[in-house]
Simulated assay, not measured.
Amino acid sequence: MIRGLYSSATGLLAAQTQSEVIGDNVVNLKTSGYKEESTSNISFPSMLVKRLGGNRPSEVAEMGEMGRGVGVDRLSISTIQGSLETTDIKTDLALTTPGYFVVQTPDGERYTRNGHFQLDSEGMLRTTDGYDLQGENGPIGPLSSEFSVSADGTIMDQGNRVDRLRIVEVPVDSLQREGQSLYSTTEAVQESAGAQVQQGAVEASNVDLSGQMVKMMTVMKAYEANQKVIQTQDELLGKAVNEVGKI
C-alpha cells in the first residue's frame, strides 16, 4: 500500500512537470523564434511480485509484475518552421530555411531563430538583450541605418559588402534552451551552406495553442486520477492502522 502511494506520487510529479512545460509554451506564444517543447514519460522498471506460503510454508507463487511509477524522460523541441510576419523593419531578420543565427554572449556562443535585432549607438547589430549577432568575420558592424541583407545573408551598406551572416545547423537532440529563445549545445555545429534570410520579417512562435489546450486537459485528468488514488490509499491505510489493529 505504501508503495502504491509512491507510485501515484510519481504520476503527480510527472503531470506537474508536463503542465509547467505546456504553460511555458503558452506564455511564449508571441515570442519570435520560440520553439514548442514537449515531454515524454518513461516507466520505472517493474518488479516481479511473489507470494510466500501456499499449501506449504516453503511454497513460492509468482503473482506478476508491479509497476513502480513514471517519470519525465526528456524534453523535445519542435523544429517546425513558424509563420513569417512582415515588419518592414530593416533590423528584423527571418530564417526561411533550417538553421540558427549565432550570437555571442558572456557564456560563449548561443543560437537563436529570434530575428528581432537592433542597431546600438555604435552601429553594431545586436539582440534585444545586447548580444552581438555574428557574421563570418565576427560581430557585425558598424552599420548605417540603410544597410541591407540579401537572401543568402550577405550584408551590404552604402554599396560595400560588410559581411555575411553566420548561420549554423545544430543537432536537434542536443539543443538546450536558455531563456526564451536562446539555445546552447555541447555538440559541434555545422555551418549552413544554403541558408536563406528574409529582411524586414521575423519568424513567429510555432506553438499550436489548440494543441496545447488539449494536452493541458489530458494532463489535468491524469493529475486528478493520481490524486484520487492517493486519497483512496490514504483512507485504506488509515483503516488498516485504526480499525484492523483493534481486532
Rank of each mutant, 00 (worst) to 15 (best):
Q176P: 11
E191T: 14
L175R: 04
R166C: 09
V172Q: 14
V168M: 05
L165C: 04
L182M: 10
R164C: 09
L182I: 10
S174M: 01
S181P: 07
V162Y: 06
D173R: 15
R177V: 07
E187H: 05
V162D: 05
Y183G: 01
L175E: 01
T186P: 06
S174D: 01
L165R: 06
L175G: 05
T185A: 02
Y183I: 07
Q180L: 13
V168R: 04
L165D: 00
L182Q: 02
E169Q: 13
V189F: 09
R177S: 05
S184W: 07
E187G: 05
E178K: 13
G179S: 06
Q176W: 02
E191H: 10
Q176C: 09
R164I: 12
D163R: 04
V189I: 12
S184M: 12
Q190T: 13
L182V: 05
E187C: 03
D173G: 12
E191V: 14
S181H: 02
D173H: 15
A188R: 10
E169C: 08
L182D: 03
S181D: 09
G179K: 01
S181L: 04
E187K: 11
T185M: 00
I167G: 00
D173V: 13
R166E: 15
G179T: 09
D173M: 13
R164L: 09
D163H: 07
R166S: 14
L165Y: 02
S184A: 12
V168E: 02
V170N: 02
V162I: 15
A188Q: 10
E191Y: 11
I167E: 06
E191W: 06
E191M: 07
E187S: 08
G179R: 05
D163T: 14
L182G: 05
R166I: 11
P171G: 07
G179L: 08
R164A: 15
V170H: 00
E191Q: 13
Q176M: 13
Y183A: 06
E187N: 10
P171Y: 05
E178R: 13
G179A: 08
R177K: 15
V189S: 07
S184V: 12
L165S: 08
R164D: 07
L182H: 03
A188I: 09
R166N: 15
V170E: 01
S174L: 00
V189G: 02
L175P: 02
Q190R: 11
S174E: 04
Q180A: 10
V162G: 01
L175Y: 04
S184T: 14
P171R: 05
V162A: 14
A188S: 10
S184P: 08
